[in-house]
Design a protein around this nucleic acid. Structure first.
Lengths: 242, 242
DNA sequence: CGCCACTTTGAAGCACTTCAACATATGTGG
DNA sequence: CCACATATGTTGAAGTGCTTCAAAGTGGCG
């Protein structure tokens, strides 16, 4: 892992040269912010003046309704842009750490000129943005059209694919710090029902989930039964394996 | 209506001067594309080389699953950007006209330099993009957390707000070309259930919907019962009424 | 006029929720 | 290291919001 998580992620989105990668490393060489697990470190209504990048750990993006209902609208992995200021726009969601996390806040006044000066990086950022948009669209399809089993299974496949791309999955297994309550908040189900679906998946030999670690035992079967097609995660066609 | 729909929409997002507005008008003064109602005029898998802007009519953004399930992920109104090419990224959704529509295709090679040359317009476009993102996030919250009544009512409030901003609503009523089947595809419900919810709304005196025209009879009651808060549609604070 | 798309209603079924209780991990201070 | 508190996971039984299936009614348009 020569470069940081952002550099590795952007390199997946658009071909970057050594200069670009080193520049990203230098850009992120500013004081970082350690965040404890379960802390809400960016809040709805805030107007942070810095770009916030997740360098280590998982985070969730949450929208709360006034009556207490909660919807997680995204899971963020290392290298994700959590927030990029624009004019005086307020955040309409919160960001919560799911694990101990490391975040870099970079002043807009430093970030935007940096992007302008590096066209390749600008392109990679734009592509990353497109993929994030496609992911959110897919979640919408999940909630609107899929059964509980399909929603959860599809999410597992998506996370595996994203983690694998940044080297955080091995042999179809990966750290999975999401509780059943959070899984329910992300899939629009009740925690009780999430629990029953997970039991079924285990009984069918599809997954193994314990101690915050998930192993997908039969990836192709799960992908098929949840209609998972990774095309939306691969803007430039499928990854070539070396 | 001195300027076209795009100019009026962008002016809502960021203050533009006369020069900017005239420039947008000129940019759109290229051959247009008339599209018949119900036609799918941009397709999943396509890689259109032009920016596609909706100037007149309504359109829907649709994702189809291989087994035929359909999810509408957005309703597009005049002034919306339907597609903006980026690298060689493919569309992962289709665009369908809901009414007879007018679309301007503008070559990327003309559009992007134009944006660069007009910082105000670039800002307005970025803001419009943010709002579109927030709308999609809200739809996710709708599907994940809300009941059928809330989903449909919230959508009515959102569309009223967006149409009102561009002068297409009068006295809480507006053209509403969406069929019950399409409403079902957008809200993740069955057409049958949509029909029953609409009946209840009518019986409660909340709405009047017939002949493709919707009037919201009790806006504040509907907004309250569907937890509608327009903040996500107003990046720069609530509109000031003259 | 007659077709086809759209709307409406009823009755039965089921995926998921709700409520309640218990079991098992995780963390904390003594 | 144990005692205890709290968060997380698990299971059962009953309820319901929405779906499914089926059929009939309505309206726009050639």
């Amino acid at each position: 892992m020569p470069y940081n998580a952002l550099a590795r992620r952007l390199a997946c989105c658009f071909p970057l040269d050594e200069d670009d990668l080193r520049a990203i490393d230098r850009l992120c060489a500013v004081p970082r912010r350690r965040v404890a697990a379960r802390r809400e470190f960016l809040r709805e209504g805030d107007r942070p003046g810095q770009v916030h990048i997740l360098l280590e750990g998982w985070a969730s993006r949450l929208v709360m309704l006034p009556d207490g209902r909660r919807q997680i609208t995204a899971f963020h992995l290392p290298g994700d842009i959590l927030w990029r200021p624009m004019g005086d726009v307020r955040m309409d969601f919160s960001i919560l750490a799911l694990t101990p996390a490391m975040v870099v806040p970079i002043a807009s006044g430093a970030f935007e000129p940096f992007v302008t000066a590096h066209p390749g990086i600008a392109m990679a950022l734009a592509t990353q943005d497109r993929v994030a948009e496609a992911v959110q669209r897919r979640w919408l399809v999940n909630l609107g059209q899929r059964t509980a089993f399909e929603r959860i299974g599809h999410l597992f496949c998506e996370l595996h694919h994203r983690l694998d791309a940044i080297g955080l999955a091995h042999e179809n297994s990966f750290a999975f710090p999401v509780t059943q309550v959070e899984l329910a908040e992300a899939t629009g189900l009740t925690p009780v029902h999430v629990n029953r679906v997970l039991r079924d998946m285990r009984l069918q030999g599809l997954i193994d989930l314990e101690h915050r670690a998930l192993r997908i035992l039969q990836f192709s079967a799960l992908a098929q039964r949840t209609l998972f097609d990774p095309a939306y995660l691969e803007p430039h066609g499928p990854l070539r394996l070396a």
